[in-house]
Design a protein around this nucleic acid. Structure first.
Ligand SMILES: NC(=O)c1ccc[n+]([C@@H]2O[C@H](COP(=O)([O-])OP(=O)(O)OC[C@H]3O[C@@H](n4cnc5c(N)ncnc54)[C@H](O)[C@@H]3O)[C@@H](O)[C@H]2O)c1
Ligand SMILES: NC(=O)c1ccc[n+]([C@@H]2O[C@H](COP(=O)([O-])OP(=O)(O)OC[C@H]3O[C@@H](n4cnc5c(N)ncnc54)[C@H](O)[C@@H]3O)[C@@H](O)[C@H]2O)c1
Lengths: 210, 210
DNA sequence: TAAATCCTGTGAATATTTTCACAGATAATA
DNA sequence: TATTATCTGTGAAAATATTCACAGGATTTA
């Protein structure tokens, strides 16, 4: 069925997956590409194309059945294996993510938090286990953690990334403005830099007005 | 010089702009496309293409001069006009962004915060002015705010967006998982949904292993 | 059972983005 | 001054991604 999913399709399918979860909860049984397109703000053709990359779906006059479609994306994107993640850096941002409930009932589970400030660790309340940063290697290996979320100060970012990669992590979600280096192409890195996003937005606004 | 900058170029140029700021601070006078490419993890050709979209730069054997290049991006992306932004929703995430110092010395300035919980506003310490949410329209207009950062609970997101758009905002940075609707194409919307990013990362990892 | 309606899936056309590959410009070197 | 080395800028090719446009299937209606 598949060659290789285009990156934009992967992204849209993830959004679609989450949309379907919500829609399912509302009790809706079918959706058509027009509805999905409207909800996600993309063209209906893209939706149909993306979905067709996962195989074929019968077609009733009503469109797609929610449950099977969701299931197909689930499998098509390899979400069967719920990934385990850790957060490194439990400051303002890290702690706010850590305590955000949405996580616990997801397709990715945050199972550990690390910080170099040991005193602070003792003060923190958290549903997930917290460890000092020097245990990253040990814990990532022993608890089979595949994803690392980096929310440490800029200066510490590359060092933390190195440790995570060393420990065999497979993916990194990087919240710092640092562009992380990895000699290991096995590791997938995604950057989520608020300030760059703000700058891009600012530029987009200016350019639109030209 | 310009037709219209491609979206990917805008994004890379923003990252480049920030990189140049750092590089400049380190006292470096010139950079070449190879160095920039390495730092940003993209191909050198892309860098040269992006830059060439902004016009031409003399070319010494050393590459580009940092200062003029930075300036060119600055103008090319319309960053001359420092944009004023506000944050709506001062909970865990919103407050953490609000208090993050990086903001105050940037190309975008956060000048106001809003929350519907008035008691909380009185408790909060902040360098920027805080207002109750019902004043959004008034303050956005009077203080010439062009960007709105949305960090309210999902349920409130569309309502807040509507208010901001109503008040004449030009861009929205949306941290909620809600896909915001706008009948007004004047408004640029960027989404920054952590959980979707995590899901995309998770999918990317799985698919890479196939 | 025939007609009308409302979908999906997808070749083919377009549009966009990236990459190649090299001409030409500049500085350093001999 | 000639030679060499090191860059940029950019046509043109290649790779990707989006969109069009419509055939054909399913369901409803008459
Ligand atoms: N706070 C925000 O809203 C915000 C917004 C955008 C970007 N960021 C980025 O997120 C990162 C963190 O920001 P923050 O405001 O949460 O910072 P913070 O200072 O509040 O927290 C950083 C935490 O990392 C810990 N730490 C430092 N070095 C470490 C190491 N080597 N290993 C493990 N832990 C270590 C510190 O003890 C601290 O608890 C920064 O890179 C920042 O640029 C933050
Ligand atoms: N906390 C995180 O780490 C995190 C991570 C990913 C996404 N998010 C998203 O960010 C958003 C905020 O998350 P949070 O954890 O900060 O929530 P929170 O509950 O801590 O804060 C929300 C704030 O918004 C205020 N608010 C509610 N309705 C409002 C309205 N109509 N106008 C103005 N203010 C209003 C509340 O008073 C509260 O202070 C959510 O949509 C969440 O999905 C948060």
């Amino acid at each position: 069925m598949r060659e290789k999913l285009p990156e934009p399709s992967i992204q849209r399918l993830c959004l679609l997956y989450r949309l379907l979860s919500r829609v399912e909860k509302e009790g809706r049984l079918t959706v058509n590409s027009g509805f999905l397109a409207e909800q996600l703000n993309v063209k209906a053709t893209s939706i149909r194309r993306d979905i067709s990359l996962l195989g074929e779906f019968g077609n009733t006059i009503a469109g797609y059945e929610v449950q099977p479609l969701k299931q197909a994306i689930f499998k098509g994107l390899g979400l069967e294996s719920v990934k385990r993640a850790c957060i490194v850096g439990l400051g303002r941002l890290g702690a706010s993510i850590l305590n955000y409930q949405g996580f616990l009932m997801g397709d990715v589970m945050v199972v550990a938090g690390f910080d170099s400030n040991i005193n602070m660790l003792e003060m923190m309340e958290s549903a997930v286990s917290l460890y000092p940063a020097y245990q990253i290697d040990e814990i990532v290996r022993s608890r089979n953690i595949e994803i690392g979320i980096i929310t440490v100060p800029m200066k510490a970012a590359q060092g933390v990334a190195d440790k995570l990669i060393q420990a065999g992590i497979k993916g990194i979600l990087n919240f710092t403005p640092v562009v992380l280096k990895s000699d290991n192409s096995r590791v997938t890195i995604r950057n989520l830099d608020f300030f760059s996003e703000l700058l891009i937005l600012s530029a987009a606004i200016s350019l639109k007005e030209r």
